[in-house]
Design a protein around this nucleic acid. Structure first.
Lengths: 252, 252
DNA sequence: GTTGCGATATAACATAAGTTAATTTTGACG
DNA sequence: CGTCAAAATTAACTTATGTTATATCGCAAC
């Protein structure tokens, strides 16, 4: 089972084979979307729900002065709010950051999902985790120096990508440019570069081409103040899927 | 009708008199809670849902080094996540910031709410708006200088308090200390003070004791980049309650 | 393999915000 | 009305991050 949506939602509820089959059915026929393509823009009426199958996308807002803030990442298995249609107007953009495979979920498919109590629970879990991530990003920006903030983002990405089988035990593909990391962290690209250099010199991360390796996740977690509790991967209502490096999720 | 929950949710869905009566019934017998009292702590299993009737509360996280980040305000009419119980463990604290009146909502009351389609829609609306506020705070911290960030927070508070009838046409009670504003903005209290001084000198805000007055909301909005769209107060599925100063919500 | 361009890297300098430490104001209480 | 502690204010100095500019790298297209 390599469906990222199934892999992710296993953490939110105990699913049956039928539940999984329904999820897999929904992921049929993803659309190929090039990098830097907006799926939906600020001001639009919310259309279909989008799900990332492969690739990388982000939510972002652009200010009057042209500055951009990325407020969330979408990795495989992540979808935008199931209930956006309740809001009359998008207040932010969602766009791909790399070439991606995207599924459009139609309203009646959404209904099929939320009419299923286990899937409904799993989807609520995903919503609550998305909010928790937003809160943690706020803590990250508000209280941590840029170096720790950078390390924290790397820890989070490693774990989230491991959950859906898109990362190795100590490394993950880094498809974002330093400019995009800067727009995520609220700092300049020059400073992103300085800070990555610092992490490299401290032996906390290694960067080869398009990949980040974390030789000792415990050290980087300590350095960054990363506590994975907020990702709620050890949820009571779920089984505990394997394939996540235990050091990455262990209680501090 | 002075029930803040009803006033708020009118913006999320068209309610019937019965819906309102149910909401009012739920708000019976609030508990008096002194300032600086935690309602729930990080690590706790989520208990009852909490609703603020009067006063002011906040969500916050505390770091190892003692630093605190406030990640959300609760004004009258705001409640914490209806479905927290899905998560096994709180990943943040919720506590009062001033003397408050709080309602504890029991699970069967929560069920009564979400079994009502209009209220369910209104509560989903509130959830989505809470997320939108988090995103806007992230933009605020990441991309705006502290002075604009401060102004933005004042604009948001004025509007949110007006919605529930707790603010005048151009002013609202400021019950937070500068330390608390600092913990919200991710800056030091000294800098909060500098920045408020700047806003005062620019004629953008006036502070008398325990109150913020905004003589020209248009100017402060412009200065702060505040666009109230993210609060989704002009929602298609709702009526448009009066009592909000139109300059505060008007499209930019 | 060369070319070209975006991404990364680095340097030198500028500034917003942090730190520490007084001083003054405010408001609760006797 | 006077006392006191917490909050607000201000000053002087330090530092993290921003700005601008230039140089190098890496990879895709030829």
């Amino acid at each position: 089972m390599d469906n990222p949506l199934v892999r992710k939602l296993e953490h939110g509820a105990r699913l049956t084979d039928e539940d999984r089959a329904l999820l897999v059915r929904i992921c049929k026929q993803p659309i190929r979307v090039p990098a830097y393509t907006d799926l939906i823009r600020e001001g639009d009426p919310p259309r279909n729900v989008r799900l990332v199958i492969e690739g990388f996308a982000g939510r972002y807002k652009v200010l009057e002065n042209g500055k951009r803030q990325i407020v969330a990442f979408f990795v495989p298995g992540d979808m935008c709010d199931l209930h956006v249609h309740i809001l009359g107007e998008m207040d932010h953009n969602i766009g791909t950051l790399v070439d991606s495979l995207i599924v459009e979920i139609e309203p009646q498919q959404v209904d099929a999902l939320i009419d299923n109590p286990r899937l409904n629970r799993a989807l609520w879990w995903a919503t609550l985790v998305d909010e928790a991530i937003l809160r943690e990003w706020l803590v990250n920006m508000g209280q941590r120096p840029a170096s720790a903030q950078m390390g924290h983002i790397f820890c989070e990405l490693l774990l989230r990508l491991q959950v859906v089988g898109r990362a190795g035990p100590d490394s993950f593909p880094m498809l974002l440019t330093q400019q995009e990391l800067a727009d995520t962290m609220g700092i300049t690209p020059v400073h992103v570069n300085r800070v990555i250099k610092e992490l490299r010199e401290l032996g906390l991360v290694e960067t080869s081409s398009r990949r980040v390796r974390i030789p000792d996740i415990r050290k980087l977690r300590e350095f960054s103040g990363f506590d994975p509790t907020y990702l709620h991967l050890h949820n009571a209502g779920s089984r505990k899927p394997a394939a996540i490096d235990e050091a990455a999720v262990a209680a501090p």
